[in-house]
């Protein structure tokens, strides 16, 4: 009897969740000001009414957004606005922080990723991440790339692995610079090369989504330009979400921009709209350098 009831409840919950996700983003009651694309793209990630807590403190308040497939979405906002926290929900990186709790709905290709039964290792293979500071393993360049495919069992032979390493390095625009020293230690590379190595490492396990948390903040302008060029090429095949403090970078690399402030999603829309005529004063004040 109890079991049947529990099952009914679970099913009802699922129906309710499904309804919530199917609600068109633009009719959802929300404080966020949204501007749709002229030609809407397929949605890769759906987030609805997401709240994130660190213990008692609420870091994200009721954020809903659609992340379009094979496009670059930029998250901007002042420090502490929750953009990195929200980004980290997409591959469950917040799980690693003690006392953190995420509620609401996040779906990748229509499948919930908040569900505790989900295999996080598999999720992180599909949703890769690049961090602020390049963090290569203290191993050879080759091993840095080979590690992921090997532990995920993506390769059968040494030849397969060689091919993946070369392909990943090529996609990251790094192969020609390192092909003669693949077995040298990765920490000997320059900062920009290390960051592209980390991107190559992320690509090696064939993810669908790449999360980038201020990927250029530790790089010089030339290395930054290379990474931005790479981001532009990667969007042919990957869905990219980038958190950046550089307004110019967001304007250069992204197709859509979302502006966060104090844990709220203030405004989101096509990048050219956000940077030429934003709707919300807070967005305008932030991107023109008038905040506070």
């Amino acid at each position: 009897m109890m079991n049947a009831l529990r099952e009914d409840l679970t099913q009802m919950n699922m129906v309710v969740r499904q309804l919530a996700v199917d609600t068109d983003l633009y009719t959802l009651p929300s404080t966020t000001i949204r501007t749709p694309d002229l030609e809407p793209q397929p949605v890769k990630i759906k987030a609805r009414n997401v709240n994130v807590f660190y213990g008692e403190k609420q870091a994200i308040h009721d954020v809903s957004i659609d992340i379009p497939e094979k496009a670059v979405t930029a998250f901007i906002g002042p420090s502490g606005c929750g953009k990195s926290t929200f980004l980290r929900c997409f591959n469950r990186m917040n799980d690693t922080i003690e006392g953190s709790r995420v509620d609401g709905l996040i779906e990748l290709d229509g499948r919930s990723i908040i569900d505790r039964s989900l295999d996080v290792v598999e999720l992180r293979a599909r949703v890769g991440m690049v961090f602020q500071k390049p963090n290569p393993f203290p191993k050879s360049i080759y091993e840095n790339i080979a590690y992921g495919p090997r532990i995920h069992g993506l390769v059968r032979s040494k030849a397969d692995l060689d091919e993946i390493v070369e392909r990943s390095l090529r996609k990251a625009g790094l192969f020609d610079e390192v092909k003669d020293r693949l077995h040298d230690t990765a920490t000997g590379l320059s900062g920009g090369q290390q960051q592209r190595l980390c991107i190559a490492r992320a690509i090696a396990v064939s993810p669908e989504v790449i999360l980038m948390d201020e990927p250029c903040s530790a790089l010089d302008p030339i290395a930054t330009a290379r990474v931005e060029e790479l981001i532009d090429e990667l969007r042919e095949n990957y869905t990219i979400i980038i958190v950046t403090h550089s307004m110019q970078q967001a304007a250069r690399v992204s197709q859509r921009t979302a502006m966060f402030h104090l844990g709220n999603l203030v405004e989101e829309g096509p990048t050219e709209k956000i940077f030429t005529s934003p709707e919300v004063k807070r967005t305008q004040d932030y991107i023109t350098g008038r905040f506070g």
Partner: peptide, 9 residues
């Protein structure tokens, strides 16, 4: 200054 939004306009 790389002006944005209203400043750019």
């Amino acid at each position: 200054r790389q002006p944005m939004a209203q400043d750019l306009r």
